[in-house]
Amino acid sequence: MNTPARPSLWRYFILCLTKNYATFSGTAPRREFWGFYLFLFIFSFVFGMAGGVIFALGLPWGELAGIQDPEQVQTIISSHMAPFILIVQIVTMVFYLPIWGVTIRRLRDAGFSTAWGYGYIALAVISIINWAVLDRFQYEGGSITQFLGVLSSAYWLLLIILACFPSRPAEENTPE
């Protein structure tokens, strides 16, 4: 038997970040979807741990130890945290298109409407606008933000469940 070898999980991750970076057409087998998310999780964990260590090493611990005012301590910590938060936001934005692309292609491969994936994109855009307008300018949007967080988490859980379904035969995978 001369069957072609399937790409490794790592190869699927690299393909999602290069060739399929912003690809919303076609399909994504379960192996591609889970391979991408596996290495995205590993990358996020390592990036977060390294960032936390670098942040902690960059704090002026001697200066912080001598300060009694909690607000002043918070101000110093926040000023050191701002560059780290900016870097995290930029890196996260770099991954948005591949995340959405592989999710929509996976839904199509499993035979579900891609509207589920586009609905999640719409929810993400609404959440970003909420953050940019309400939370950034200190309007009373706490309950809206919490609701959007819960809704987004529940929606994402639904998408993960849908992604677990097996691929449909090629004739059933018709473009929408």
Score class of each variant (00 low, 15 high):
E63W: 02
S8V: 01
M93C: 13
I104E: 08
R105V: 04
S143H: 14
E71I: 11
G141W: 08
T114S: 07
G142R: 09
I128F: 14
W10T: 04
G51K: 00
Y155I: 05
D109R: 07
R136E: 04
Q146W: 14
E171T: 09
L134F: 13
W100V: 09
W131H: 14
R31I: 06
E176Q: 07
I54E: 00
Q138V: 08
L64M: 06
A56N: 07
A154L: 15
Q146N: 14
G119L: 02
T18Q: 07
V133G: 03
E171P: 01
W100G: 11
S143C: 06
S78Q: 15
G142H: 09
V102N: 05
I90F: 08
S44D: 03
W34R: 13
E63Y: 02
L157G: 12
R31N: 12
G117R: 03
I85Q: 12
F55A: 00
Q146P: 04
W100Q: 08
I87Q: 01
I87G: 00
D69R: 13
F43G: 03
I90W: 05
P60V: 00
A82T: 13
S25T: 15
P169D: 08
T145G: 12
R168Q: 13
T103S: 06
P70Q: 07
T3A: 07
L9M: 09
M49C: 02
G52K: 00
Y139E: 07
L162K: 07
W116T: 02
G48M: 01
P175C: 03
W61V: 05
G111Y: 04
I104M: 12
F147C: 13
P29K: 10
L159D: 02
F137Y: 14
G52W: 00
V125E: 10
I76L: 12
L107Q: 03
N173C: 05
P60T: 02
I76G: 07
M93H: 01
F41A: 14
L40C: 10
R168C: 01
L157H: 04
F147A: 15
A163F: 06
G141V: 05
L123T: 08
I90L: 11
E140F: 10
A122K: 09
F33E: 14
Q138N: 15
T18M: 11
G62M: 09
N130L: 14
P4E: 12
R31Q: 15
G62C: 09
I129M: 10
D109I: 02
E172F: 10
G35W: 11
S79Y: 08
S44R: 01
R31C: 04
L134E: 04
L159M: 03
G52N: 01
D135Q: 15
V150Y: 14
V94I: 15
K19V: 14
E140M: 07
A5L: 13
G142E: 10
A154I: 15
E171G: 05
I77D: 04
R6H: 09
G142S: 09
A110M: 01
Q138W: 14
I160A: 06
T75E: 15
E172H: 10
A28Q: 12
L151V: 12
A170D: 07
G142A: 08
K19Y: 08
S25P: 09
Y37C: 04
I76R: 05
I87F: 03
